[in-house]
Design a protein around this nucleic acid. Sequence first.
DNA 1: AGGGGGACCTGTGCGC
DNA 2: TGCGCACAGGTCCCCC
Length: 302
Amino acid sequence: MPELPEVETVRRGLAPHIEGKRIAYVDLRRPDLRFPFPEGFVEALTGARIEKMDRRAKYLMTYLTGLTGDSWVWITHLGMTGRFTRSDLGSDDALADNSIADVSFTPGRFHNQLEVAKHDHVIIGLDDGSRLVYADPRRFGFMHLVQADALSQYPAFVNMGPEPLSSDLTLEDLLSRLSARASPIKQALLDQNIIAGLGNIYVCEALFRANISPKRLAKNVGKQRLARLIPAIQTVLSEAIAAGGSSISDFKSSDGALGYFQHNFDVYERADEPCSRQECAGIVKRLVQGGRSTFYCGTCQK
DNA sequence: AGGGGGACCTGTGCGC
DNA sequence: TGCGCACAGGTCCCCC
């Protein structure tokens, strides 16, 4: 599911409701997601105070102060189909006035019924009576636990590329990272060690906006095109965040806060449709690169 | 070291 | 209605 904008949307939806709260209980419905839950996971979270929920690339980082005063970071990756849903278990009035904050990207469910759905794998109860439910049908997501002072040694972060919406992303740096790459630019941009947080949708969309062919070799993109690509990446991500992310999939229910950026896709999942540039007579095409679909206009992307 | 291919899972949609 | 296949927002691991 989630690329940077969707993960950021989840973070923004949850943070104000959970920061400062204490975790009352942790209910693991199975021993693993993609990986087994870490040793001591439940013990570390139970009773801990949630200080802050942050994001790096597609990772959610929840800073905790444990019962014994130690500082932990609870790391969550949503994989392809992971989602967090928050619900207040308070009064019926609270339900009636629609105060449930559902930040899922699939049909929302009312967890006040204390029902556990098939793919609800982790249930976190907070001291204000609310609950966080982590559901993940494919279980490509995972949770880890690291000591706060060891966060930079977390394997995925060691060689991770710059945050695209920060000043860490610079033309010179990206140029040098790409100059050694023989692979097509599409595949290079999916590498989290080149730029962090992009996924299949936003790489396709950014390349379209920058008029760059996904087939062009990374090392041949050059400074001129990169000077267009960086702002293209930043604007598409910013617009997607402002839209609450992209909710792709078939929705049968309108419960929950669905993103709507999918309505603004220029190329993604638009194969055989006309290029969205008025002046371009091209047709959007699909090809497979590195086993994943790429959508692009072969007429205006060079 | 970089790159290709497969693995990990479940669900959905489509053609027959 | 059922079956088989392709495909899905991501990473990780093995092998060359």
